[in-house]
Write a protein that binds this DNA or RNA. Structure first.
Lengths: 159, 159
DNA sequence: CATAATTAAATTGTGCACAATTTATTCTAA
DNA sequence: TTAGAATAAATTGTGCACAATTTAATTATG
């Protein structure tokens, strides 16, 4: 890259990184939107939106969880989560209950219907098949880089 | 990867790809959100939202463009774009005008203020600095993979 | 103990994002 | 040439996403 000036053994200049960084944001944004769009129809057939799906996936994996812990796992605050979870409750997939030990917390559980949904959702990931033309290795690399980026962002927030 | 069974020289099984594909969607979604969140404050200081920013960036690059062509470039339909562009018009950064040759089209132009904004926006990409811990090469790889994925999704849509 | 600080959810208000429909204009084919 | 198809924007309605504020409960401190 760059000018070929390697005398000072510098890292690529900040300017270059920032030029690329500027361009990174848009494909991230666009790609996320388009991939979620692919999931939309199959999810609709089992009665979920994408956001509801990731909430339910966390519950499938962890079982009972507080709204706070759930929010930290999926990067959503109560302003988004509270209404989403209430909708899932209306749909009959989850129960909400204040913790007796600390009434500030709401714990969320799957109902029987919510548990049963997992079987129906098994084919959801197939939606990507034939829509994303990346090899297995490319997907693995992409997955790894996205998670590395996320970790970095998280560290910044914790500080 | 996988079982080590290479007798039939198969590609990694669909099952494996789908397992990973299932996991790919969430980091994409989360990473896009978090990166956009990093841009939010600096953009706010020059009076733009992220969506308005990508619209303006297209105008900086291409100059006059129709709403339709703009929408294709940034993957947004008129339902999203029309109100966003009208807000940019209210803010004084763009002008909207029906094409005389074909009144169905709206062409969008930058105002002087919209052109001036480019100078102020120069430092926006620096927002990522110190927030994404990826090397230059990693960013390049990520950028390439995201664009490759986007192309694939696009092909599917054109068909 | 009582008040202040902290914390988890909920609420409020703004701004997308998108499917579905409508409106207005242009094109096309009988 | 004119009715129907096609097209670009606009509109409508739903559902996030998030900053900022509020409410209610718990913890910490003088």
């Amino acid at each position: 890259m760059g000018t070929g000036k390697e005398i000072m053994a510098e890292l690529p200049s900040k300017f270059e990184v920032l030029k690329l960084g500027n361009q990174l944001c848009f494909p991230l944004y666009a790609c996320a939107k388009e991939v979620i769009k692919i999931y939309r129809k199959p999810l609709q057939q089992i009665g979920l939106t994408y956001t509801q799906y990731i909430v339910i996936m966390v519950l499938w994996e962890y079982g009972e969880i507080s709204e706070k812990d759930l929010g930290e796992k999926i990067y959503l605050d109560s302003g988004t989560l509270t209404p989403v979870i209430k909708k899932l409750e209306k749909s009959g997939f989850v129960k909400r209950q204040r913790l007796a030990e600390d009434e500030r917390f709401v714990k969320i559980n799957l109902t029987d219907d919510g548990i049963k949904l997992k079987e129906k959702a098994k084919t959801i990931p197939q939606a990507l098949e034939g829509n994303i033309y990346l090899s297995y290795d490319e997907m693995k690399t992409l997955y790894g880089l996205l998670n590395k980026a996320l970790e970095g962002i998280n560290e910044g927030r914790i500080q």
